[in-house]
Each structure stands twice: as C-alpha cells, then as structure tokens.
Design a protein around this nucleic acid. Structure first.
Lengths: 210, 210, 210, 210
DNA sequence: AATGAATGAGTATTCATTCAT
DNA sequence: CATGAATGAATACTCATTCAT
C-alpha cells in the first residue's frame, strides 16, 4: 500500500465520520447526539473517532465549518456565471435552496447552531459567513447602483432566504405527521423557489416608469 | 389566608416552573436542559416539579403549549380590531414581531422544536398552530377576493414572517460576538418590522391600474 | 356521633390500611411496596397512614403480627376439638392449608419475611410462632407416647407443611403463565391437602404389627 | 498475555458480577438490591456492569438463569450414576440439598422469585425447570412401573423437597436470632437430609408383602 | 490504526416522610 | 381527622472520554 493510499484511507475514514456526525447532530443537536451513535453509523470504533478528530465539540465544529465553507465556495463560484443583478440574486437564492434541498440535514444543523448563539463557530466559519453576506450585499448594491433595485438592507434579504428555505425544509416532517385541513397548502420545493424569487424581486425592484 | 389565596399559591408555583423552564429550554434545548437548573431558577425543590408537572418531557410540552396558545389567542384578538386586509396583515406581522421582541426565549424554543420535527407538540398545540395558519389564510383570501392582494400561498407568508423575526432575534448574540465589517448593517427591531411590512405588502399588493 | 362510633371509625380506617398493606406488601415485598399505593388502595390520604400507623416498617410489622397471631389463635382453638393425635395432626395441617387457601397473599408475605431472616418480626410475633411450634411438638409427642407415631422432629413436619402449601400457593401464577408439558400435573388445593395428609401420616405412623 | 487469557479476563469480570449479584439479590431481593452495592462487591466500576450485562433486571434474570441451569445440569449428570429408582430419588434429594447447603444464597433467591410469580424467568430458565420436573417425574414413574413406589404426584415431591431444604436454609438466621425454648430442636443439615430421605421413601414405597 | 474494556462525573426520577393549613 | 404541598436523600442508568493491548 502506497503512502498516498494510506492517506486516502484516512481521508475516507474522516469523511465517513463527518457524514455520520452531520446526520446525528442534525437529528439530535449537540447535546442530544451520542458519540456511540456517530461511531456506529460511521462504521468505526468509538476510540478511533477520538484518535482522528478529538472529541465531541471538535467534531461538531468541524461539521459546521465544512458546511459553511462549502456553501461559501459554491455561491462564490456560481455567482460568477451570472451577469445582471437580477440573475445574480436568483443564482444566490437557488444556491441556498439547492444546498438545503440536496441535504435537509444541513438547515437543521445550521439553525440549531444559530439558536445557540453560534457558540461553536470557528473563526474560519465566521469568515465564510461574512463572505456570503458580502456577496449578497454586493449584488444589492450593484442593483441599486444600476437603478434596478431599490435600496434595502442585505441582511434582511439573506435572512428571509435562509428563513424561508430553512423553514420549508424543517417543517416537512410536521406537515406529514399532522394532516393540515384543506385550504392550507404547503408548496413543494420547486414551486417554493419560484414563488420566493418572484416575491423577492417584486419587493426590491424599482417600479418601472413608462 | 383565604381559599383563593391558597389556590393562587399553587398556580404561582406552576407559573414559576414554567417561566424557568422556558428560560432553560430555550437556552439549552430539551436534551441540554437540566431539571436541577430549572428547579433552582424556579426556586423550588426538584421533586415539586415532578409533583406538579410530571417529568422533563411533560414540562417541555407544556411550555410549548402555553407559548403557542398565547400567540393564537393574542393574534385572534388583535386581528378583530383591524378592518382592511392590509391592516389585518400588518397587525398579524406586528403581533408575531411583538411576541418575539417581548421574549427572545420564545423564538429559540419554537425553532428548536420545529427542527426536531414537532415531536413534542401536544394535540392542542397543533390545533393552535392550525388556528394561526387559518387566520393568515383568511386575511390573504379576503385581500384576494377584494382585489387588493394577488393570489399567494399563505404558508409562505407565515414562514417568511416567522423566519425573519425568528432569525433577527436569534442572530442577535452572533452579531454581538463577531463584529461584522462595515457595510453590513443589521436593522434594529423597529426598523426591521417596518421594512418587512413594506416588503411583504409590496410583494402581494395588486398593482393599481389608473 | 358517639365516642364509640368514633373509635369504630378509626378501627375501620386502620383495618382498611392493614388490608391494603397486606395486598401490596405481598405483591411487592417490603422494599418494593409503595406507601402511595397502600394509601390509595386503602382509600385514604397518605399522611393519614402516618398519623394512624407511623411509617412503612411499623406498618409491615403490624401486618405480619396480625397474620401470625390469627394463625396461632385459629390453630389453638381448632385443635381442641380433635381427640386423637392423628386427628390433631390433620386438623393442624388443614388449618395451615385453610389459611393459605383463604388468602394467598399470606403465604407470600410470610415467605418473604422468612427469607429476609425475620428482621421484622416483633417479639409478640415470635411468641406466636413458638406457640404454633409447641402445638405441633405436643401433637407428635402425644402420638409418640401413645405408640401411634414414630419419634420425629416436629420442626421438619412444620416446615414440610408450610413448604408444601406455601409452594403450592405461590407457584400458581407460574403454572398458569408457562404451560407445562403433559405428564406433569399439579394438583388442585383440595387434592393436595388429602395427598399431603396421607403422605405425612404414612411417614410417621408406627407400622402396626398384627 | 495470550489471547485465551484475554478472553478469560472478560469471563472473570462477568463471573465476579454474577457472584456479587447473587449475594446482594438474595439478601435484598430485586427491588431492595442496590446496583452500587453489587458493583462494589464485584470490585468493578458501576458502568462496567451496564456495559457487560445491561441493567438491573437483566442481571437478575441472568443470575436466576445460571442457578437453575447449573441445578438442571448437575441433577441430570448425577442421576445417571444411580440405578434403582430409590437410588435415583435419593440422588435427586441429595442434589437439591447439596446445592442449597453449598450456597444458602440460592434458596433465598429462588424462593423470592417464585413468590413474585416467576416474572423474571427467562425462557431458558423455564426450560430448565421443566427439565428438572421431568427427571423427578421419570424417577417416580419408573418406580411405579417396577412396583417399588406407589403412584403419586411428582410436583408434590418436588415441592416438598424444595420446601424442606429451602425452609431449613432460610429459617437458619431466625433460629439464631430468637433462641427457641428447649424441646424444639431444628436438625442440622446432614440429619435433615437423612430424615427427609427416610420420610419420603416411607411415604411412597409399596408395602412389601411377604 | 484499531479495539474492547474501564471510569467518573453526571442526570432524571422516585419515594418515605413531614409540614402547613 | 384530613389534605395538598414540600423536601432530601437516594438510585438506576448514561455518556464523553481514556486506557491497555
């Protein structure tokens, strides 16, 4: 076995741990998660988890970090392919929606962490959050400068976005368990994205004078 | 001491427990909360908590129930004082914002509970949630019937509302801990309400033809 | 209400407590029994139990005492109506069998107490036990003197008797829960008494020379 | 240390737990026993008890199972060395007596369990009980077929046996604590076995016609 | 790197007993 | 006598973490 294979193997193990950890932490939260359960789902011995990562809180922070970093990278990259502010905003929204839809564990974990005041954000996680906020800010500023958007407060847009898709995602089980009465429909993901895009654009677009 | 005082005393003890429980559960979640801590903050013997309420999960459910019931009652009552759909919608939004602002523990608790899939909602809590959804639904329907609102999906409006104010509330500590760079402003509560009202109304109001 | 009625009422309450206590102690043992359960079954407030009796151990001892005292009284009285040693022995055996059959809670309680080394026998309970042993002893001695019984050790006879009927009684639930395979029959109470009388008499009767 | 030693070590720990558990359960019963006490006497950390066995009730059931299984094995084996029904019956009786004498904790535990209705017998424990009953049944049937025993009910013989030796064993402390008056002798174990053998044989042997 | 065993510091819950009224 | 409330001392069980091999 070559040295590279060796490192690969280690990387694979760590990945398995992180995947299992995201699952368990999102289901149960930091306090509720059990190290035994994470190790079991990762298919490794519990002591190995300590060997590779080093403890519950370190593992939790690492999971958070990976998620936010991936989101920041993804948004940064995708936004480059858009040209107008409207396109960029839509790209940003769809990116958030896509991450949430692809893995519903993620909004659960991020929301939990926000609720607990971001106690476990590492410095680099904070930097990635700021990076995302700056992107949104930039899009809105550009739109405002070009006269297509009214002036608004970027953080509100960001929160509305996280809020809507986060809530849509986490409220899923609830809607299944308790049958809501007729007249109250909850949209599926695709429709929700379209509807939300429309609402946001309507809310910040300059009214066109003709 | 009169008989009334006597009965009051019991109610007072239970109230103290519920207040303390909201605090601790919102800070630490169901799993993270410590019964000892709740009893301590309520100023009672731990066993009394079991005597009056009956265990951690029952206590948690009761706290959730009280919050949602109070919200449903409050919205139901206030909405009656409004006449037009726009006024009603604004009343609803300000009501949610008001509850959140009055006690920032509440959004934390409710968000946590939603994330965990509403496992601990009692049937009456579910009924109260449905009640609120029906109110929002009614307002939007009325507006649509009267031609002032476009047709939209009530649950999205509800979730945007919960999402924005919930997020504004829970992201507070985060903003304090990590100083955001200039250019990214987060509005204070009053401004956030106004801004959000404007956005929502803009997003669903029929464009007036003249 | 007269003073007599008053005392009657108290006696009734105490009786209810004792009956409930026998039930619960026999089902669960001293450690397993719950004061709340006893009070509930007696239909009284828990604090009243303390007022009337004074605590768990005192209650337990009192129950034991009443049972043994009643047994001693009953045997003493019935034995007088028998004349020959054989009749007396049969009377004694049937008396034990009768007490056990009448209230299956009793053998459970007495056996439990014997196992724990008689820790909770009061002095008067011990005296009553000795009284019973002396009766058995007397019957066998008389039989031996008259040449109808061989010499034997009374305590063995007493223990065989308690053992057989106690076991028959307590093994009831077991036999019901697990269906024994054919070929292993357990006699009903009436047959058991007859069979046991026969065996005991056969075992100690002098062989008659003709 | 060899691999065998390693596996032995685990077995040793479990054995220590089982020995300590038999002690404590027999002294205090299932409800009265304290896990801390068992762990202390086993010389292990309390958590290891849960790691290896899995809780109070599982431990209790395991102890019961081991005892009954050992008894069934022992009787099955020893009976093979006997030839006549009389010899077999005596072997069976001495076996029961031997187990009881060797470890007086055992009758206490078994009696307690019988009193509580065999709630904690595992299926395999029930099978072992049936195995023993079948042996007794077989001996008596053989004796009856060969004309040396009268027809009788095996379960009564079994219960007399358990009853006598169980009672002799558990009544020991009682006899020591309260000095019985002269004239009431309780036999020591050796004499009790002989006396009981004689009585049982007398009771079921066919009278020989000459 | 891998694993079964070990540990200590919790943590929810129970319950006999007492108190205030 | 009667009762609901209060208390403190247990007690079974858990779990993150470490150790020996």
């Amino acid at each position: 076995m070559s040295n590279t294979d060796y490192k690969e193997k280690q990387g694979v193990t760590i990945d398995r741990i992180l995947v299992a950890a995201l699952e368990v932490f999102s289901e149960s939260g930091l306090e509720g998660a059990r190290i035994d359960e994470i190790a079991k789902r990762a298919g490794i011995n519990k002591a190995m988890l300590y060997y590779h990562i080093g403890g519950k809180e370190a593992l939790y922070s690492e999971v958070i970090h990976q998620i936010i970093h991936h989101a920041a990278e993804s948004i940064t990259k995708n936004i480059k392919e858009a040209t107008t502010p409207e396109e960029k905003l839509v790209t940003y929204i769809r990116n958030i929606a896509g991450i949430v839809e692809e893995n519903p564990k993620i909004p659960k974990l991020i929301l939990r962490e926000m609720i607990s005041g971001g106690k476990n954000y590492t410095e680099s996680a904070v930097q990635d959050i700021i990076r995302i906020l700056k992107i949104v800010s930039g899009i809105l500023q550009e739109g405002s400068d070009k006269g297509v958007f009214i002036e608004t407060i970027p953080v509100i847009i960001h929160m509305m976005t996280l809020g809507v898709f986060g809530f849509l995602s986490i409220s899923g089980p609830l809607r299944e368990r308790f049958a809501f009465p007729k007249g109250i429909k909850v949209p599926d993901a695709r429709i929700a994205v379209e509807e939300f895009e429309k609402l946001v654009l309507r809310s910040i677009q300059q009214e066109r004078k003709e």
